[in-house]
Design a protein around this nucleic acid. Structure first.
Lengths: 183, 183
DNA sequence: GTCTATAAATCGATAGAC
DNA sequence: GTCTATCGATTTATAGAC
């Protein structure tokens, strides 16, 4: 039962931090969406920052699972890269409404004046994975290509959300896919 | 004198909304940085949202001024596009520390559930201007090229801030500039 | 072990003093 | 016209009841 409520709280936090942002989301909101008594959040999480950390960890686990799943479905580096781009694009409606789940949290936590952003792992994970794919293709500028792809996606996600236009992500994905094919 | 204080408040708000974010910035913070009595903000602005709107308007005016200045310095569309990219890259240290002043506010205001984001103008202005330059170069995919350039810059700004690495923006600017030259 | 009642602090906003 | 004192509503967090 403890596990059930903690997971419900975490799920509610993941949704709200994405849809409302970190600062605008209150612990009462999270408790309410999880159908847990208000204030009862503190039995499962020490502080609000603890909730944020748990959400980031959950996102990181999800990213790792997605990348592993792509590796099991595709053997060639090009097919793997294209599958990831396809996965990005498939979220276009959600992204146009609320922004990229990873990008928005990185943007919001990026200006807390810490040496390193607690959400940086959410960018480093897919970038490192893409770097591996580009390296397997024999590119020695693999790291820069990976950064370029991630930037193209995150920038398109920001524009799609700002303009409320999911087609911006469709077009970006098509362009990126063509770029991978042309390697 | 009224003008002096209002401008000081607006300047303080521009800095704080960039460095701390919209939600984390309080009216007391703004008043303190502007050296205006706490609470006195309400004589110059009706609500906090009014302050945010004024900051967006100020950014929009700055963007317009920058674009006009580039037009006066450069005649060719390619030189103009490269000058804008150069201007983006020149802010790399600030961006690595606090994020892009336009992108962060668009990201934070993008998930308020409004039909259209109040900060969208900050993206539309430079994109429309870049579209004009690409059109002057005879490209009929001008609008998409402009979106692609803006996305590449905003995405790189997010990564540079998340990783605390201004060189990401240097590399992105070099790549984009090469792309413009190759047109 | 789980949750309620409440504290402590802070924020946006206002009424009215000067 | 300008600003101070303060209100009311929230929010995070805790102490202790059940």
């Amino acid at each position: 039962m403890r596990q059930g409520k903690r997971e419900r709280l975490l799920g509610a936090a993941i949704e709200l931090l994405h849809q409302e942002g970190v600062e605008r989301t209150t612990l009462a909101d999270i408790a309410h969406r999880a159908e847990v008594p208000a204030g009862g959040v503190y039995y499962y999480f020490k502080t609000k920052d603890d909730v944020v950390t748990a959400v980031i960890d959950a996102h990181a686990a999800q990213v790792r699972a997605n990348l592993t799943e792509i590796e099991s479905r595709h053997d060639s580096p090009k097919a793997r890269l294209k599958a990831l781009v396809e996965q990005f694009a498939s979220q276009r409606e959600l992204i146009a409404e609320f922004g990229c789940p990873l990008g928005t949290i990185c943007s919001e936590l990026g200006n807390r004046h810490l040496e390193t952003s607690p959400a940086a792992v959410l960018m480093r994970l897919p970038i490192a994975w893409m770097g591996e794919q580009y390296r397997a293709l024999g590119r020695d500028d693999a790291e820069e290509l990976a950064l370029e792809l991630m930037a193209a996606y995150e920038g398109s996600a920001l524009l799609a959300n700002t303009m409320r236009d999911p087609s911006i992500l469709t077009n970006a994905a098509r362009r990126i896919t063509r770029g991978i094919d042309a390697l």
